[in-house]
Amino acid sequence: MQTPEEYEITERVNALVKGLKKRRGYTKKDISQKLGIGLTTFNDYLNGVSSFKLGTLIKFAALCKLTLPDILDDTLEAKKLYSEDLADRANAGKNTLDFLAFILIIPAATSALATQWLFFFLHLLLVVYSRKDLNCMVVNVVFLLVYLLADLFTLSWHEYIYPNYNGLIQNTTAFGFPLLTNCLLMYFIKNRMQLSVWLSKGRNKEVLEPNKLDAPVYIVLVSLVFADSIAILENILRNLEHFGIDEEFARQFWKVQYIYDNYEYVKVFLMALVIILLFIGTRIRQRQLRLALGESGLGMNT
Rank of each mutant, 00 (worst) to 15 (best):
F52G: 00
V49I: 06
R23N: 15
R24A: 12
V17R: 13
N14W: 10
D30A: 01
G38K: 08
N14H: 04
S32F: 06
G38S: 10
Q33Y: 13
L20F: 04
K28D: 00
G36Y: 10
I37W: 03
V13F: 05
K53R: 14
N47Q: 12
R12N: 09
L39W: 04
L57H: 08
K18M: 13
K18R: 14
S50P: 02
A15Q: 13
R24Q: 15
Q33N: 14
S32D: 03
L20H: 05
D30W: 06
F42Y: 06
K22N: 07
L16T: 06
G48E: 07
L39H: 09
G19H: 04
F42I: 06
K34C: 12
T41G: 01
R24L: 15
V13H: 05
Q33S: 10
S32N: 02
L39F: 06
F42L: 04
V13M: 10
R23P: 06
L16N: 07
K34W: 13
G38Y: 00
V49C: 07
S51D: 12
N43P: 00
S50Q: 14
N43C: 02
S50A: 14
T56E: 05
G36S: 06
L16S: 08
G48A: 09
T40I: 05
S50T: 15
L20P: 02
K28C: 01
S51E: 08
L46N: 05
I37A: 07
